[in-house]
Simulated scan of single mutants.
Amino acid sequence: MLKVGVTGGIGVGKTVVARMFKVLGIPVYDSDSRAKWVMHNNEALKTELITAYGAQVFTEQGQLDRGYLASVVFNSPEQLKRLNSLVHPHVRNDFANWINLHADKPYIVKEAALMYESEAWKQVDKMIAVYAPLEVRIKRLLMRDTHRTEADLKAIIDRQLTEEEKMARADFVIKNDDQQMVIPQVLALHERFLGLAHTY
């Protein structure tokens, strides 16, 4: 089975692109939502999180206290790296198990913001980078994340791998710059992946 990764920085529209593949009948693994699920449901990871951040990382009801965790890691690159080192291996295992559920499909898509940073690219055969110019991304994000300021968003973007590096490392680039239509780009890749699928 051909495995395709979709990545890009915050605000580029990678989720929109992934949704288009889903509409075409291709299973899509949403790394962000699956990471949240794993953090709530994987007992080994829950134990690791409590060991690392204390019992207060979960509420009395057993729910992950995302606000507390964010306050610990947001301004600390070391703590963020530590959190990712705990979570990413479990997400990789979850993805490997998920693949087995879709063995009848010609290809699958894995969407992840930190595809390169988490080494998740090693689990896929082809990579798509979704690109949008910085000013377009900021405009979209200010409309979507109304609680964040432009400075907040630029701080998040500055911590991510540059778009230039993502595009350089990707096999394919989809431009979601409000100038070019995205659907024809996705359809062209879909046909290409169907043609490649039998070789994997």
Rank of each mutant, 00 (worst) to 15 (best):
D30F: 02
S31I: 09
S31G: 14
S31E: 04
S31Q: 12
R34L: 09
A35C: 08
K36F: 06
V38K: 14
N41R: 00
L45G: 07
K46Q: 09
T47H: 15
E48W: 09
I50Y: 05
Y53R: 13
Y53P: 05
F58L: 13
T59E: 07
E60R: 14
Q61M: 05
G62C: 01
Q63K: 14
L64S: 05
L64D: 08
R66G: 13
G67Y: 09
Y68C: 05
L69M: 12
S71C: 11
S71Q: 11
V72W: 13
V72F: 13
V73H: 03
S76Y: 05
S76I: 03
E78C: 15
Q79L: 06
Q79A: 11
K81M: 05
L83P: 04
N84Q: 04
N84G: 04
S85L: 02
S85W: 00
V87G: 01
P89Q: 04
P89G: 04
P89D: 04
P89H: 06
H90V: 13
N93F: 11
N93A: 14
N93M: 13
F95D: 00
N97F: 13
I99Y: 07
N100S: 15
H102Y: 14
H102W: 04
D104M: 12
P106A: 00
P106K: 02
Y107P: 07
V109I: 15
V109Q: 09
V109T: 10
V109R: 03
V109C: 10
E111L: 11
E111F: 05
A113L: 09
A113I: 01
L114S: 03
M115R: 01
Y116W: 02
Y116M: 00
E117W: 02
E119F: 02
W121E: 12
W121I: 05
K122Q: 11
K126W: 04
M127A: 02
M127R: 08
I128Q: 06
A129N: 03
Y131S: 03
A132W: 00
P133Q: 07
L134P: 04
R137P: 00
R137W: 03
I138E: 11
R140M: 10
R140H: 08
R140G: 06
R140Q: 03
L141V: 08
L142D: 01
L142G: 01
R144M: 09
D145S: 01
H147C: 05
R148P: 01
R148K: 12
E150G: 06
E150W: 05
A151W: 03
L153W: 06
K154I: 12
I157Y: 04
D158L: 09
D158H: 12
L161K: 08
L161R: 14
L161A: 12
T162I: 08
E163F: 12
E164C: 12
E165T: 11
K166F: 14
M167S: 11
